[in-house]
């Protein structure tokens, strides 16, 4: 069975914006697209650790604020010429609340250990 954790209201994040969730092992960026979908990814760009939550969100992608790499919010894959992948975590919306899958915390905990 999957456990989901309520991390906040959808309205707490601007459309085409992001906020971070602090965890024991660095931050997770939670994105809201222009069409109100949510995605959760590690908040560190594989290039030079740029904070992805501060990037520009367009379609279902985000552009890293430091050197403009573009990542798919769905798969975490770098788009176009660049190569790299950001870990993604299951996220969904229920009655206006954003839920992240609890097990992601465990996986992050495991890496921390």
């Amino acid at each position: 069975m999957t456990d989901w954790i309520d991390i906040g209201a959808l309205d707490d994040i601007a459309p085409r914006g992001a906020r971070v969730v602090k965890t024991g092992h660095g931050c997770v960026a939670v994105f809201r697209t222009g069409t109100d979908e949510v995605f959760a990814l590690d908040n560190a760009c594989p290039h030079k650790q740029g904070p992805l939550a501060e990037g520009i969100v367009h379609g279902k992608t985000v552009t890293c604020p430091l050197h403009n790499w573009v990542f798919s919010l769905e798969t975490g894959e770098a788009q176009g010429a660049d190569e790299g992948r950001v870990t993604t975590y299951p996220a969904r919306i229920e009655s206006g609340r954003i839920l992240l899958e609890a097990s992601f915390l465990k996986s992050r905990g495991a890496r921390a250990a």
Partner: peptide, 10 residues
Amino acid sequence: PIANLMLEAA
């Protein structure tokens, strides 16, 4: 941050 899950993670 929108949420702080440091405690739960610990």
